[in-house]
Amino acid sequence: MKMTKIYEGSHQWIMFGRDEGKPGNIIDTNQYVVRTANRCLLLDPGGAELFAPMMAAVLHHAPVDQITDLFASHQDPDVISSLGLWDQALTNAKLHAPAFWEGFLRHYSCESIEYVGIPDNGGTIKLESVELQLIPAHYLHSSANFHVYDPQAKILMTGDVGAAIEGPDTPVFVENFSAHVEKMRHWHQRIMPSNQAKRVWIERVRNLDVDILAPQHGRMFKGDDVKRFLDWFDALQVGIAV
């Protein structure tokens, strides 16, 4: 598992991904970790297949008992089918996930972990002195969906928005935006169902100060590429399969 520190301040953001040991037939995912002095939050911790390499990678940054919080942007298996394993490994942890999906996500087993349902209008996760905002991103692509914004690090974790499906050795940041566009087009047109939801989300995100836009698949967008992505996404027609 490749680890890339993407923010270092009073706390840290680390991106995990490009796992070499991953079976070829499952989608490659990016996991993000927010690390404060004594706590650790895993954003979209990944599928069951990824549990062991992910846990092993996190152990370079935090001991197990300091993994206190998990976040699931939505209910997809590539996001959180590892829940049942985290549930057995962690004591006193919380899962922050859409309230709407609680009855669904509990199918993965969530007994010792406390399910903290995020209401439709969003909320926050407090990690010691760090306060992360949970930004509603419903219908992008899941009907109950949230993104995580860190105003201090200026990072917006966007789940499946901004994703691209590429090979295992892909760089972690977009280097040439116009070349990258073709890798994103079909994914966004096919997986995102609603132009209206997209418009509302873009408006919301344009009001945030974002340095890094961090999707769950593919490459992150940095600096001016964030604005480029928003403009490109704004102009894109989605929900094309009907």
Binding site: F51, P53, M55, A56, H60, H61, A62, P63, D65
Partner: peptide
């Protein structure tokens, strides 16, 4: 779970906090 935890522990190798996996 036991098998995955053992695997994670092995994969962690010389990670700073590898030992914390012993308890789980």
């Amino acid at each position: 779970a036991y098998n995955k935890f053992e695997l994670a522990s092995k994969m962690a190798g010389d990670a700073v906090y590898a030992k914390s996996m012993q308890e789980p």
